[in-house]
Structures are given as structure tokens and as C-alpha cells.
Design a protein around this nucleic acid. Sequence first.
DNA 1: ATGTAC
Length: 411
Amino acid sequence: MALESVWMEGDAVAQLARVAGMDDCVFAVGMPDLHSGPGIPIGAALAFGRTIHPHLVGSDAGCGARVVSLGKKLKVRGEALERRTRAAFEAPLDEHLDLDGVDDEALLRAVWERGAEAIAEYARTEDLAAFARAEAEPAWLPASRRFADGELPEALRLDARGRCFATSLGTIGGGNHFAELGAVESITDPAAAEALGLQRRGHVILAHSGSRGLGRALALRWGPGGLVETEDQATYLAELAGAVRFAIANRVLLCWRMLSARGAAKSSRIRGTFDLVHNFVSDEGEQGWVHRKGCAPAEQGVPLVVLGSRGAPSWIMRGGGQPACLCSVAHGAGRRMTRGEARDKLKQRHTRASVKQNAVGRRVLCDDTKLLYEEHPDAYKAIDPIIETLERAGAATRVAASSPLLTVKLR
DNA sequence: ATGTAC
């Protein structure tokens, strides 16, 4: 599904065709941001009649994006904003959460079982608690698998270094994950924008991140096989739900760090917020088990965001409920170059200093030079043809575009 | 995407 103006990678199409040919695959649709992943396509919705494939969800279960709409006033700007933002991401989590007497495993359990609600429970301020409670969990999200004390498997408690996954809560991670302060540059659907608290030149905070090492542990635990109507299938779904809750809670905290740096960490200043998950599988009745990998649900009227890059706007849209697209939309612009290609080609084209600047000439907060090249805007497809394709296909309609002011990629 | 080891 793409206009001719959307560049499409041959390998990615071949990967999509391979999945479409798998046993029990009843429908497969590639989004215009389709690109190749580790043996599986990214930017696709894949429906199976009876089978769940954990490896099609991949190692970043629950990955998604959160949008927070703010007013126009920016109290902190320029270098002070950059300094404060860096400090906000370097600060320990207990600046925001009261974790006295709460060990890492207890925190992990709470977030696993209750997601953002757990953040509200531990929040040091009523403002953070209100923010964490502002969004209902997605309707498709089942209960997380509960574990008795001591029963939590090592694989879901400890990373490869023996550290509890709770230590990654509130961190961005690597790859294409980021937090961003942006500004609304255009509004296409004024009524929908108003309902989401978006106003022209108003600020927008974006967080794109996932369940960190926890999703990886889940992928390793379940391996490449398919799960068919067994107890294992139910167990995987309940564990996936835990990882999704962790990821949602993580995005809440990332947005809160951005809000505190900007000087707007007050629930009264927040005009709207929503969250979107783009790596998961859910039971969608007649359609079967819909796996979305780099692809978000887009039922009629729901708010969603299609992420641009640090040099291109992200589009806030409304879902079109298009069955031909499995009620789904692209998750972003999609890669045009592999990470290796981006490093090689873009080092010729751009200086080390220039890759540290984003579209508006402000610095990108990122200490990893390799990552600055890998995630350079040139490594991504153009966003406009992606959005145009989604509209023409009836997958979603434009509401507003937000352009990046400050991009954060601190680990 | 993530974490680890080289």
C-alpha cells in the first residue's frame, strides 16, 4: 500500500511476501513506511487465523509513542532548555517516584501488573499522579500475567548482567527511540486538533520508546515458533500485556522528564495526551490475530501519530477504520537506509558538527556519534508521501503537524 | 531494539 512517490525497499517487500505465505496467514498489509527488519518486515499488519507468532511482534513488545499537547508559552529556551533537559534525563527516577522501601523487583511487578497506574501510585506529586491517570489503557490490552511472590521467572526479572529490568524504567533506549519537544506548525482538522488540545504554534511533547530489555527477554523466552490455542498462547498474551504496560509507563515517565525540563510539569498546563502502541498482537474477531510490527491500530476516529524524524514533522492523525489496511497505520517515515549504509554514506555528506543539529538548528541531545548518523533525517523516507498514501487509502486523516524543536536521544 | 563482548 503506497503511492509511486514512496520509495520501497525490495528486501522489505520480499520479507512481507514471505510472511504472507506462512501457514495460517490470512491477510498481510505493508504500510508505506515498510522496511526490512531482522528477518521480518517492519511497518506491517499481519493477520493469522489461529496462530500467534511472538517473533513477528519482535523483541520490542509494547513499543509506541505518546503525545502531550501544551500551550504556547515556553519559559525555558535555548541553552538553558538543553541543559535542563539533559539534567532531567540524568536525574534518578526517585526524583519523581517515592521508592522508599520499594525494591527493584517490587517496582517491576507493579509496573508490569498495573502500568501507568503504578506510576500514579508511587508519584511524589499529585501532578504526576494526575498525568499518569489521564489515559485509559487500550481496549485490546488483556490482564498481565500475575506471578506469586518469588515466582517471577529470572528471564523477566533480570537482564543478561543480572540487573533488574526496573532499572531501565524512565530511560529512552537506543535505535530510533527518542523524546522530543516540538511545535504545531499546521492544523488541517481544526475540530479534531481542538479536541486533542493542539493549537497552532503550541508545544507538543513526543516520546517514542518501548519495554527496553524486558521485550527482548520476552522474545528470547518465546523463540520463533507459532502458538496455537494452547495454554502457552494465553500465557504469551498475558506476558506481552505486562511488557506493554511497562512500555506505556515508561513513555509516561519520559514525557514527564521533558515536561519538568520545559517548566510545565503541572497537570493544569497539559491540554491533552494520548498513547499509541505499535508492536503487539491482538484478537480482532473476524480478522483473527492481528500482529502489528511498526504499525499502529487506527479504528475510526481514534487519535494517532505518525512519527517523522528529527528533521521532518510528525503528523497527528485520526484513524479511518479501513478494513483493507487491517484498521492500521504506519508508525513513522520508515528507514530508507540500513544503519550501516547511513553511517557510510552520511559521513561523506555531513560533518560531525552538523549531525548534532536538528531541523531548526538546535542541538540534538545525543552523545553517541554513530547513532547521530544512523538516525539522521536523510536515513529516513520523506514523510509527506507516507501521509498522503495513508489518507488516500482511507487509513487515517490529517489533524496537525508538529515540527521538532529539541530532540533527545540520551541513553 | 537491546545488551554484551570484542
